[in-house]
Design a protein around this nucleic acid. Structure first.
Length: 559
DNA sequence: GGACGGTGAAACTTCAGGTTGCCTC
DNA sequence: GAAGTTTCACCGTCC
C-alpha cells in the first residue's frame, strides 16, 4: 500500500489526487466544517459527491441516515437530484444551490449549523444572503461563464465568499483558500482579490422598469405628490449624486409619470399627482406597471377564450403562455440545443394562435421559443407529470420549477384581482381554479379531491381512478376499500377528518355518541353532493356577512 | 458473418441567482 | 475554460 504523502507547503495529508478533497478531509477530520464554492450547480453536486466518496470517517451515521430519508421524502416522488443529495448526506456532505426545494435547502442549512453536516459544496447562493459560516472556505472556482467566455468574478463577490470563513463568537480564526494552477495565477489572484479595490456600486434608478415601479409606489403611498416634492426626492438620490445629470433624470421621471397616467394608474390635477384605485392595487401587488397594463389591456381577449361553456387544456395553455410573457417570469427556462427544432416548429404552429403575438422589436426569437418551453413545463405540471419526469425531460430541477410556480401563482392572483375589479366573475373563477391546479399539480377533474386535507395529487388520482370522485364518495366508501387505495394510516386520518368512522361492515359510529352500531341509510351520490353544496354555500354566505360587517366596523354587532 | 457489448477518443453542450401577493392550516 | 454528456469508431466475443 502507498504511504500517504504530505504537501510540502502546509502539511496537508494527501490521500487523493485532488487538492480540494484533501483540504476538505483534513479539516473535517479535525472536527471542523468546510464550505466549498463552485461556479455551477453541476459542479457543486460533483464536488460534494467526490468528497462524500473519499470520506472514510463518517460520524453520526444514524442521524445522517435519518436526514437522508427526510431529503428523499421532501417531494412526493424523489428526483434524481434528491437521490444524489441523500447519498451525499449519508456521508456528512451536502450540496446547495437554487435547484433544491426550499425544504431541502432549510434541511441542509439547519443541519450544517447544528454540526451534523460537515461539508457544503455550493454555488454562490450561500455567500449572498445566508448566515452560514464555517472554519474553512474553499473557493474552487473564481471564474464564471459569461457572454464573453470565462470571466473573473467581481472582487465584492470574492470577499462575500471568503468572508464566510471563521465563526464569530465560536472560533478565533478562519481560513479561506482559493485554488489556482500556477504561481503566475497565484500572484494575479492575490493582487486582484486580496490587495485590489472592490468594484464601485452604481445606482440602478436610471433603469426604466425600476423607476416606474418606485414612482408608482411612492405616489400611491402619498410620499411624494407634487412636482416639487418629486424633484426634491430625486435630487437626493444616489443616482443624482453619481451622474450629476438632474435635468436628464427629471425628464425621465416626468416621461414615466405620463406613461403611468396613460395606463390609468395615476391622476394629475395641475402639479399634483395621485394614485387611482387601480394604481394603488397595482402597487400593492408589487407588479411592474407595464405588466399590469399588459394584463389589463388583454383581459377582454382572455375572457373571450373562456366564455364558451366548455374550455379545454389548450385554452388553459393560452392563459399560461399569456402570463409567461410577463417580465416577472424572467429568466425563462433555458432552451437546450436539442430542443431548438421542436420549439421552432411549435412557434410556427401555435405562435399566431396565442394572445401575445411575437414582436421582434420586443423579444428575440430564442426568448420566444423559451416562452413556449416554459409554458410546456408548467402545463405538464398541471397535467400530472411527475416532478422527476419533468426535471429529466426538460433538464431542470425541482427548485427552479417551484420558483417558477410560485411566481406564476402570484401573477395569476394579480390577474384574478383585475378580473374581480372588472367584474368578470366567470373568468375570475377560471383563474381561481387554475391556481388550485398549479398549487397541487393536478388536472381539473380532481380539484375537489385535493382540497381535502391529507390528499395530494397522487392520492387524489388513485381515488379518482377507483371511482371515488367527491367528498361524499369518500364518506360512503368502506374503510377497507379506502385502505386498499391509499394505505391504512391515511385512510384512518381521512375518515377522522370527515368526522365519522366506518366499521368494516360499512356501518357508522357517530362521534360524540354512544358506540352503538347504526345501519347506514342508502343515500344517492346526488343527494349527498347536494347536501355538501348547501353546506359550502352556507359557509360562503357566512363569510360574506362577516366581510361586510368588518367593512362597516360592525363585527361586534354581528356576533 | 452478424449481432452485441465494452472502451475510449472526439465532438458537442452547458454553465449563478430568487424581491414581490394573499390565504389557510 | 472546463466539466459533463453524447456520439461514433473500433475491437473482441459469442452464437
Amino acid at each position: 500500500m502507498n504511504k500517504p504523502k504530505l504537501m510540502e507547503s502546509n502539511k496537508i495529508l494527501r490521500t487523493t489526487k485532488e487538492n480540494f478533497i484533501d483540504l476538505t478531509l483534513n479539516t473535517i477530520y479535525k472536527g471542523k466544517q468546510v464550505l466549498i464554492f463552485n461556479n455551477s450547480k453541476n459542479s457543486s453536486e460533483a464536488t460534494a459527491e467526490k468528497v462524500a466518496i473519499a470520506n472514510k470517517r463518517v460520524e453520526n451515521k444514524i442521524e445522517l441516515e435519518q436526514l437522508a430519508q427526510k431529503i428523499l421524502k421532501s417531494l412526493q416522488t424523489p428526483t434524481k437530484q434528491c437521490r444524489r443529495l441523500a447519498k451525499c448526506i449519508q456521508k456528512g456532505t451536502a450540496f446547495h444551490h437554487s435547484g433544491l426545494t426550499g425544504k431541502q435547502r432549510t434541511l441542509v442549512e439547519t443541519n450544517f449549523k447544528s454540526g451534523l453536516i460537515k461539508v457544503i459544496s455550493s454555488t454562490p447562493t450561500l455567500a449572498a444572503g445566508l448566515n452560514l459560516p464555517a472554519y474553512k472556505v474553499i473557493i474552487k472556482d473564481y471564474k464564471r461563464f459569461s457572454a464573453r467566455g470565462m470571466a473573473d468574478i467581481p472582487v465584492l463577490e470574492f470577499h462575500q465568499m471568503a468572508g464566510r470563513a471563521g465563526r464569530p463568537g465560536k472560533e478565533t480564526i478562519g481560513r479561506a483558500v482559493v485554488l489556482v494552477k500556477s504561481e503566475e495565477e497565484q500572484d494575479r489572484v492575490i493582487k486582484k482579490y486580496i490587495f485590489g479595490k472592490s468594484e464601485e456600486i452604481f445606482s440602478k434608478l436610471a433603469v426604466e422598469p425600476t423607476l416606474k415601479m418606485y414612482l408608482l409606489s411612492l405616489i400611491s403611498m402619498d410620499m411624494i405628490n407634487s412636482k416639487n416634492e418629486i424633484k426634491d426626492f430625486f435630487k437626493n438620490t444616489l443616482y443624482a449624486k453619481q451622474y450629476q445629470d438632474l435635468e436628464g433624470l427629471y425628464f425621465n421621471v416626468f416621461k414615466i409619470l405620463q406613461t403611468l397616467k396613460g395606463y390609468g394608474f395615476i391622476d394629475q390635477q395641475d402639479d399634483y399627482y395621485r394614485a387611482t384605485r387601480l394604481g394603488k392595487r397595482v402597487s400593492e401587488l408589487y407588479l411592474n406597471p407595464d405588466t399590469a397594463n399588459y394584463f389589463l389591456e388583454n383581459l377582454d381577449d382572455l375572457e373571450q377564450i373562456f366564455s364558451k361553456e366548455i374550455y379545454n387544456e389548450y385554452d388553459t395553455y393560452k392563459l399560461i403562455h399569456f402570463v409567461v410573457n410577463a417580465i416577472e417570469m424572467r429568466p425563462l427556462f433555458r432552451l437546450q440545443r436539442s430542443e431548438e427544432d421542436i420549439y421552432m416548429a411549435k412557434v410556427s404552429d401555435l405562435g399566431d394562435d396565442m394572445v401575445t403575438k411575437y414582436d421582434p422589436f420586443e423579444m428575440d426569437y430564442r426568448e420566444l421559443m423559451q416562452t413556449f418551453k416554459t409554458s410546456d413545463i408548467l402545463q405538464d405540471w398541471i397535467t400530472e407529470k411527475s416532478e422527476d419526469d419533468i426535471c429529466e425531460m426538460y433538464k431542470t430541477t425541482p427548485g427552479e420549477l417551484n420558483y417558477k410556480l410560485s411566481n406564476l401563482d402570484w401573477l395569476l392572483y394579480s390577474l384574478e384581482e383585475f378580473a374581480h375589479l372588472k367584474k368578470m366573475h366567470f373568468f375570475k373563477n377560471v383563474i381561481k381554479k387554475t391556481r388550485i391546479r398549479f398549487k397541487n399539480g393536478v388536472k381539473e377533474d380532481i380539484i375537489s379531491l385535493v382540497s381535502i386535507k391529507g390528499i395530494g395529487r397522487v392520492r387524489a388520482r388513485k381515488l379518482y381512478s377507483a371511482n371515488i370522485r367527491s367528498y361524499s364518495d369518500i364518506k360512503k366508501v368502506s374503510y377497507r376499500k379506502l385502505e386498499e387505495i391509499i394505505g391504512r394510516s391515511v385512510a384512518h386520518k381521512l375518515k377522522q377528518e370527515i368526522g365519522n368512522e366506518y366499521t368494516e361492515n360499512d356501518t357508522v359510529v357517530y362521534q360524540n355518541s354512544k358506540p352503538t352500531q347504526i345501519k347506514v341509510r342508502e343515500v344517492s351520490h346526488e343527494e349527498v353532493d347536494e347536501l355538501v353544496a348547501t353546506h359550502i354555500k352556507y359557509i360562503e354566505e357566512e363569510k360574506e356577512v362577516i366581510k361586510s360587517a368588518e367593512k362597516n366596523n360592525s363585527l361586534l354587532n354581528y356576533f
